[in-house]
């Protein structure tokens, strides 16, 4: 598969800024905000790239990655939240296996 760029410099800078700023705010914020911030970053990255990625990746971005509401934290339901995250992690990892051709033994 040919390599192609899916982020503009403006988009990359926005994301970089978000991550750096979140590192600072998380020093003083409740721990439960940490996953929320990372998921917000993932959501923004996903919104930036969704129109430029392969159809298969688009399915991942518009399906499993959208499952967790942007305001969800573990406070209301810690077990349910962890399960939701597990499902998204599994979906991302399964997509990696297919995208990088691991099941076909491609290295």
């Amino acid at each position: 598969m040919p390599e192609k760029l899916v982020l503009t410099e403006d988009e990359a800078l926005e994301l970089l800024s978000f991550l750096v700023m979140a590192a600072r705010t998380m020093v003083g914020e409740p721990n439960e905000y940490a996953p929320l911030r990372l998921l917000t970053a993932a959501g923004r990255l996903s919104d930036f790239i969704v129109e430029r990625v392969t159809p298969e990746t688009r399915v991942l971005l518009s399906g499993p990655l959208k499952q967790i509401p942007q305001t969800a934290t573990r406070m209301a339901d810690a077990d349910g939240y962890a399960k939701q995250l597990d499902a998204v992690c599994a979906a991302v990892a399964q997509h990696l296996v297919r995208h990088f051709g691991l099941e076909r033994g491609i290295r």
Partner: peptide
């Protein structure tokens, strides 16, 4: 838009 933040 995102749902409201849920409480405990």
């Amino acid at each position: 838009g995102p749902a409201p933040m849920r409480t405990w």
